[in-house]
């Protein structure tokens, strides 16, 4: 019997939503939540003997302690296989699944599998280290994700050979493998070129890695004269959310005038973000968007001025394409308005 330990967050563990995202890890015997379907998909050669549950915020704010504590819990059950998630497009959950899978693989030397949506930040962080099955972006994709994860996990547990990413459904790890093909390379290259010229579909055998990096700009020479703008992905909006920015998968951003605003209060500002406990930001939004402190620094002459407008969106399951589009648009306005530096805050 293959002994499996499963990792899930506080939400799937039935402990609670964002208000419980700070719970410390615990381990329970047997299956919990999505473990039920996973157990069925794994078949009768494997059994989920225990489930680790940890709050997403707790894990992300205390990565080292959380990993160490969970490793100890997992070790006691002496598993042959470790499965985390799936996390879909939940960023903190994905980071937790990836980190703990990597730690278990390295320290306990057993196979690990997790599942995520391709834009989950956990993918770029851990795709080289662990097998991540590609899933839909939301839990509605659970029914497709579970069998795919179970299948790959069983193969790894039985030490069977693992095929290419597209055959097995995991996200490419950047591993190159020598294989025999019936046609030689020059012929395949020419065929690919011909297909490309004809506008037909073709698949490269060596995709180029996508390094989208922007070099750092030179520093501000005289901060006392600089015009500084605030931007946030933490969803801080005027009370009532006038632009109706969505609490997740935001399709827009807001631009808000700070003229005469010296302090964000519970009566005037709130968060529209649905991916963290809003209690603290709703009481005092300066905790996410530090307008009060910047006004003080402006008065004291530490900075030149705080830009009249701030820009806000909700960074919760928001697609990379949208975030890029928002920022590309307002960055042009910032340039036009003579802004010299930006402080961007994220929750």
């Amino acid at each position: 019997m293959i002994r499996v330990v499963h990792y899930i967050n506080q939400f799937y563990g039935g402990i609670g939503g964002e208000e419980k995202a700070d719970v410390k890890p615990e381990i329970r015997e047997g299956v919990v939540g999505p473990g039920m379907a996973l157990k069925a998909a794994l078949g009768n050669e494997a059994d989920i003997i225990a489930t680790v549950i940890c709050g997403d915020s707790y894990f992300n704010e205390n990565m080292e302690e959380a990993s160490a504590a969970i490793l100890e819990m997992v070790k006691k059950y002496n598993p042959d296989l470790f499965i985390a998630g799936p996390a879909f497009n939940a960023g903190r959950y994905g980071v937790a699944c990836g980190s703990i899978c990597k730690a278990v693989k390295e320290k306990l030397n057993i196979p690990v599998v997790t599942g995520m949506y391709i834009e989950n930040p956990g993918v770029d962080m851990f795709k080289k280290d662990v097998h991540i099955v590609e899933t839909a972006n939301a839990a509605t994709g659970m029914r497709q994700a579970i069998p795919a994860i179970a299948k790959l996990a069983m193969k790894l547990a039985k030490n069977e050979s693992i095929g290419a990413p597209q055959e097995e459904g995991y996200i490419p790890r950047g591993v190159r493998k020598n294989v025999f093909k019936s046609e030689r390379g020059s012929k395949r290259a020419v065929d690919m070129l011909v297909a490309k010229l004809k506008g037909e579909k073709f698949e490269t055998e060596y995709p180029m890695p996508d390094f989208d990096r922007v070099a750092p700009n030179p520093p501000i020479l005289d901060i006392k004269k600089a015009k500084i703008a605030l931007v946030t992905s933490g969803g801080i909006v005027p009370k009532g959310n006038p632009d109706r920015i969505e609490s997740s998968s935001a399709s827009k951003y807001g631009k808000y005038d700070l003229t005469g605003v010296n302090d964000l209060t519970a009566e005037t500002y709130e968060t529209a973000h649905g991916g963290y406990d809003p209690t603290y930001a709703n009481i005092d939004a300066d905790r996410v968007l530090p307008v009060d402190v910047l006004r003080d620094l402006e008065k004291e002459g530490v900075i030149g001025e705080l830009h009249r407008y701030y820009y806000a969106t909700v960074g919760n399951g928001t697609s990379v394409a949208n975030a890029k589009k928002f920022a590309a648009t307002f960055a042009q306005e910032l340039v036009k308005d003579g802004v010299q530096a930006v402080i961007l805050t994220s929750t």
């Binding site: 750092p216 890029k324 920022a327 010299q340």
Partner: peptide
């Protein structure tokens, strides 16, 4: 990245 890209340090 998009802010950095237009030449504003962030």
């Amino acid at each position: 990245k998009e802010i950095e890209r237009v030449g504003i340090p962030v």
